[in-house]
């Protein structure tokens, strides 16, 4: 009894030792900053207060009254609604297609995947050119159909749609990769027996392919959702969140708060809200949806 316990302890200690190096980095670069942000969020720390003052929840109260916060928050939700389902659906279609075709397989997969390899800053520049009225690619293309100049990035009602299209273009190829791997893990026998039974193709997809891809879908949807909160690099290049915050997103607002307004207290409060939100999303998906998924 005693030795068993000791053995267990020994095992645990050994495991901890192995975890130790990566744990150090996790603590240094993740847990410690998160704790720091949480602490700073209870302080007034901006340019008017060289020594931070404890103000409790005032930063959070201020946030609730801040029109811009609500605007970027709603924007972010629309951005997620616009990008997550569309890019997942597109990724699935692309994966099924890239999995089926016989000729030019490598070429198709590369073509679908390559937007992922381009850094977001470069993508921002490329699409800035595409959307620019007057000489932009889109503007010239539409001119052939007699459509006048549309100022995609300069019009409040269009800028978000323009951003969503760009991000779907970038993200779908990446998610396709996971679906391709998922598809190749489904055993061919099921398809063969379905064929023998004469099951129609769409039914095969809905009854076999789709359910068996659910673990992949869950994983991809978490990545897609968190990405919709994380991807802001393009704002730098393209709109700076404008016009009138129409394309502004939560993380970019955090940046503005911290490095343009030098309001570290409020920036920390925003960061805390964002972390809580992302944790909540991940928790719902893992603990809620996880049960409905068929794992083999």
């Amino acid at each position: 009894m005693k030795t068993a316990r000791r053995n267990k302890l020994k095992m645990n200690a050994f495991a901890w030792m192995l975890l130790f190096p990566s744990l150090i980095f996790l603590i240094l670069f993740t847990f410690y900053p998160v704790a720091g942000a949480l602490k700073t969020s209870f302080y007034m720390a901006d340019l008017s207060t060289p020594q931070p003052i404890y103000i409790g929840l005032d930063n959070y109260k201020g946030m609730m009254e801040d029109d811009v916060f609500w605007k970027v928050f709603t924007n972010n939700i629309w951005f997620a609604v616009g990008t997550v389902p569309t890019s997942i659906l597109l990724a699935l279609l692309m994966a099924v297609f890239a999995n089926k075709i016989v000729r030019a397989k490598g070429l198709v997969r590369t073509a679908f995947f390559y937007p992922t390899l381009i850094p977001m800053i470069a993508i921002g520049n490329i699409w800035l050119f595409i959307y620019t009225p007057g000489y932009g690619m889109l503007s010239r293309f539409l001119a052939n159909f007699g459509v006048g100049d549309i100022n995609w990035l300069g019009t409040q009602s269009l800028v978000m749609i323009a951003m969503i299209i760009m991000v779907v273009w970038k993200e779908a190829g990446y998610f396709m990769l996971f679906y391709l791997a998922g598809l190749q893990n489904i055993s061919q026998e099921m398809y063969e027996s379905a064929e023998v039974d004469g099951v129609p193709k769409w039914k095969v997809f809905w009854r076999i392919t789709f359910p068996l891809l659910m673990p992949t879908t869950l994983f991809v949807s978490i990545i897609a959702l968190t990405n919709s909160f994380k991807l802001v690099d393009h704002l730098w290049i393209m709109t700076k969140g404008g016009p009138d915050n129409a394309s502004n997103l939560l993380l970019y607002y955090v940046y503005e708060m911290a490095f343009k307004f030098w309001d570290q207290g409020m920036a920390s409060a925003l960061t805390t809200v964002m972390i809580a939100l992302l944790l909540l999303i991940a928790a719902i998906q893992f603990f809620g949806l996880d049960r409905k998924i068929h794992y083999r």
Partner: peptide, 18 residues
């Protein structure tokens, strides 16, 4: 507090102009 003042003003200008 130049950053916040300018941001508030810039946003208002854009809300009128765009």
């Amino acid at each position: 507090n130049n950053g916040k003042v300018v941001k508030a003003f810039n946003d208002s200008l854009q809300s009128v102009l765009t």
